[in-house]
Design a protein around this nucleic acid. Structure first.
Length: 507
RNA sequence: GGUCGCGUGGCCGAGUGGCUAGGCAAAGGUCUGCAAAACCUUGUACAGCGGUUCGAAUCCGCUCGCGACCUCCA
């Protein structure tokens, strides 16, 4: 297996990846808080890590992919622990039980992951299902002296921890001094000794909806705690990769490290991976309402797929969006614009048609080895090498497009497929399909007909194309063009090639 | 205000000391009944100003512009 290099956000360096246990990889990714529908920015993040998951498996690792569902304890606003959390707020607004809210948006989230063709994780633990584990972790942290209880709530003693452990602030580049300086400006400190301290366990108010019994009385867990408790439970106290959006670095992940160290005495993660943001016309996509414009700078997936977003001129399919995401590196911001996604749509179609042409191609005749053979092999190797270089998907994709060029020249007859060996040809066929479908997780939406109706549609299309062919043979251009134009109006595009006519559906 | 990051050809977006990124768009050509598709050819881009170096888009400094985090966000 070729070495894989991964950029670790904690050290800021690209390091060779070696798992804690050979052949096994533990991957933890922060999942959604299920109080509302996911937007496209959320989808980008999960798609980035889906490709990480897929590629690790492609390389032969046995991956345990854990992605949590946050269904409790995620507070709104600043340090005011008396306010409702996100779940409670949504429950009240929708007049539903918190668990109903969680269920509704969990289903929506799963559906959207499926639409984007993101694979389900191996385990999808919920915060509410791991209260015992979280309480135990609070107890461990208390025992180790890094937390204190005040009136039924337990806080992490960030100041003490930071003084004794240089690691605090390393991930987000924050200094304890800066944190102390910030304290003067913040309000609502409540019972906390210091503004940088954060709640591990929060005492319930009489109106709190989700409460559990604990050694400190009725309450609920703090947001950061669930990830620490659940990653430890399913992946151990030290595991390979922890992923999440860039915006979770601070305070969420910083505090997660502190909790794990505070409880177990060691840094939990070998490689921290942070995905960059999806921008909408140059600004971070976000659900919150812009006070100036009164609208949120975000697009919901369905709005995009149905063409209902005011930001876009027409509908775009999920795979076009997935393709757009592939064109940018996961650590770079990606700007979503109408122009950009339109270009992606064409690129996606080109890639898919290349893949299909290759899959249907037959190797005929004698081998006549040329330098083409070497070039094709080099391109395949380079694409894999690029993936091994911190999952450089856009670079690998570039090699695939050079291969599309070669495939097309075989198809059009400009070059002969015999210029490469039969072995290389077969390798290329497998390689290309693996990359497009298995690693990149794309689906071919351009092919006519869905599974259920394909037989009828294919039969009809064959018949129509025969009619057109005979019209053309009789130089009946009126009829042949009418067939072409009518099909075109139905978004079926005909393509006349040297071996007859093919067709695709363009959305 | 503090911390961090970025500024690449018409657009998107890789590259991070010398080696063609790629996609979209545009122009010319080949093919075609016409078109579409496909193929061939065409762009010496790296915010500005200095510096280091044999050599810089790539390293350093300054200036300008943009973004993220510091409060919930993937």
């Amino acid at each position: 297996m070729n070495p894989l290099y991964i950029h670790d956000s904690l050290s800021g360096e690209k390091k060779e990846f070696t798992p804690v246990n050979p052949d096994f990889v533990g991957l933890y990714v922060c999942g959604p808080t299920v109080y509302s529908d996911v937007h496209l920015g959320n989808c980008r993040s999960f798609t980035s890590f889906d490709i990480v998951y897929r590629y690790l498996m492609y390389k032969g690792y046995n991956v345990r992919y854990v992605r949590n569902i946050t269904d409790a304890g995620h507070l709104e606003g600043d340090a005011d622990i008396n306010a409702d959390d996100k779940m409670a707020k949504a429950a009240k607004a929708l007049k539903l039980e918190p668990m109903e809210v969680a269920h509704r948006y969990t289903l929506g989230f799963h559906k959207m992951m499926d639409v984007f063709n993101n694979l389900p994780p191996s385990v999808e633990p919920r915060a509410t299902g791991h209260i015992t584990e979280q309480i135990r972790m609070v107890q461990d942290i208390l025992k180790n002296g890094y937390a204190y209880e005040v009136d039924g709530s337990v806080y992490f003693d960030t100041v003490k921890f930071a003084k004794e452990n240089a690691i605090y602030g390393e991930l987000s580049g924050r200094k304890l001094d800066d944190l102390q300086a910030e304290s003067r400006e913040l309000k609502n400190q409540g019972d906390k000794r210091h503004s940088a301290d954060f709640a591990l366990w929060i005492k319930a108010e009489p109106t709190t909806l989700q409460v559990w019994e604990s050694p400190w009385g009725l309450g609920f867990p703090g947001w950061h705690l669930e990830c620490s408790a659940m990653s430890t439970k399913y992946l151990g106290s030290e595991f390979d990769i922890h992923g999440g959006g860039e915006d979770l670095k601070f305070p969420h992940h910083e505090n997660e490290i502190a909790q794990n160290c505070g409880a177990c005495g060691k840094s939990p993660v070998r490689f921290w991976m942070h995905g960059n943001m999806l921008l909408l016309n140059g600004k971070k996509m976000s659900k919150s309402i812009d006070p100036e414009t009164g609208v949120s700078n975000s697009v919901m997936p369905d709005e995009l797929f149905e063409g209902k977003s005011p930001f876009f001129s027409k509908p775009y399919s999920p795979m076009v969006l997935r393709f757009l995401m592939l064109q940018a590196h996961y650590r770079s911001p990606l700007d979503l614009t109408d122009e950009g996604i339109q270009a992606a749509e064409k690129g996606y179609i080109r890639l898919m048609e290349g893949q299909r042409a290759l899959a249907e191609m037959k190797y005929e005749g004698e081998e006549a080895l040329t330098s083409e053979d070497q070039q094709v092999n080099a391109l395949m190797e380079r694409a894999l090498k690029d993936m091994d270089d911190d999952f450089n998907v856009p670079k690998a994709l570039a090699s695939l497009f050079v291969l599309v060029n070669k495939i097309n020249s075989f198809k059009s007859g400009r070059a002969s497929v015999n210029a490469i060996s039969k072995e290389t040809f077969e390798k290329l066929q497998k390689f290309f399909a693996d990359f497009v479908f298995v690693i990149f997780g794309l689906k071919d939406e351009t092919q006519g007909g869905d599974e259920g109706s394909s037989e009828i549609v294919d039969g009809l299309m064959e018949f129509i194309l025969e009619m057109r062919q005979s019209a053309r043979a009789n130089k009946d251009w009126g009829t042949s063009d009418k067939i072409r134009d009518t099909l075109n109006a139905l978004k079926i595009q005909l393509k006349d090639g040297k071996d007859g006519t093919t067709w695709t559906v363009n959305n």
